[in-house]
Write a protein that binds this DNA or RNA. Sequence first.
DNA 1: CGTTAGGTTGACTTGATTCAACAACAGTGG
DNA 2: CCACTGTTGTTGAATCAAGTCAACCTAACG
Lengths: 260, 260
Amino acid sequence: MALGSVAHILDRMVRKFEMRARLDEADRAALYNLPFEIRAIPANRYIVREGDRPPGATLIVAGLAYRHKVTIDGSRQILSVHIPGDFVDLEGTLLRTADHNVQALTQCEIAIVPRDALVALIEQHARLSHAMWVDTLIDGSIFREWIVNVGRRDARAGMCHLLCEFARRLEAAGMAENGGYELPMTQEQLADALGITPVHVNRVLRDLDREGMIVRDKRFVRVPNWESLRKAGGFNELYLHLDQVTPEAASPGDYQSMRA
Amino acid sequence: MALGSVAHILDRMVRKFEMRARLDEADRAALYNLPFEIRAIPANRYIVREGDRPPGATLIVAGLAYRHKVTIDGSRQILSVHIPGDFVDLEGTLLRTADHNVQALTQCEIAIVPRDALVALIEQHARLSHAMWVDTLIDGSIFREWIVNVGRRDARAGMCHLLCEFARRLEAAGMAENGGYELPMTQEQLADALGITPVHVNRVLRDLDREGMIVRDKRFVRVPNWESLRKAGGFNELYLHLDQVTPEAASPGDYQSMRA
DNA sequence: CGTTAGGTTGACTTGATTCAACAACAGTGG
DNA sequence: CCACTGTTGTTGAATCAAGTCAACCTAACG
């Protein structure tokens, strides 16, 4: 994507896929020519519900959203948090039915791309299909790390890891100010992401704060010492595949601006 | 795949992808013409290590394998268990580096498909690329359910859920005898899959056995009352997408034999 | 036939939950 | 403008599910 071009609704999505495979002009044009319908979603509104058969794929254009499942006894597990540029329901679109819920974390703007247009796109553009597949693989990698986070890290380490992940992802997306970021999640939502209780989230955050691992101002989090947070969470960003380009792809430097 | 044909090394893989998208003769032929190298792997041998850059994709031909990660403090989390027909390291092949380990659970036979051949295949066969992508989406769905399992189910429910998942998957693959199956995992491995300790696994299994929820003979598990195990685990097989065919795909009934 | 991996059980400890109260704050309507 | 209300955050005390430690048992195997 040429620098200096007028910002477009789909820019973030296109930019992301350019990091996933080497696209040519036709690929880019095809992405930008996708039909879509923009919709504004207030915070906390459901975007997809388990069991839905959505008519199209949902792309986050602005705001944050999260996936979650609710168990039979009513407890909720948050599965991932998504940022602008992410498709959040390829499952519901390409598989038959959505197997989990997607809900707006903050106020969102979403673009709905009709299923047929998406299917036609991937049938006609092998590289785009490849890029989207790689994207799905990376999502899977993040899910795997979350299994580790809830399965094998205690509350404190899990929280540190989660904060590290958000920091790096928001930073990579240019959504973090220097040394901190706005994390618009309630403690209850953090609890549901970590598989613990809100009360315990509160205690863990308090302790991290007291020890100087983080500095909180409302929901803005600042990390004075990245290295100690990273160690406390056992965080290794390999699983985010932030530098992911296919081996054939762009020469080094092309995406440096994304990695600050 | 025509019934009655001579069994082929790649049959299970081809059969699986036929459930993921409607393939034509050329697609099938391309799959069967993939070059590969067969290798025998003893139980517990590593197949892929975190950080590896494998030269090709590994397909399980016979036996079981599992993915896992080890945290900084040495505890292990098992991420998934794989059966014949599954590719286990598309991550290492299509992304730059493997972000987790893959280890043989039992003695395995694997087929290694060179990376270039695989990339050529997906570039030339949109439907195959689609099928494999759908497969990755389903893997992701299973990972998500595992996040719920370790995050929001207690040890007992988690174990029941895990046993249900294995039952259904092995059944769908024709690897379960009626009413039971061989689960070749040690209690330590079950513990690492559930994010608990081996000692606790032992107690949970003992309790389930005493209550008549399961009947054990070595590692062969029989489920006398499927419905009660299903309820105790809060198991809903939607997430396995066992019936997954693309909407345009095969007419109903084609795969009934798989679902006993 | 000793060695080892896996399984089993009891006693004790601990990280996290539960319950319950209260504080801070934003929004809403009289 | 303030009282009212609901959501989110905070803290203490009691309880519990799961972990830890340690002993011992069993079966497989070179």
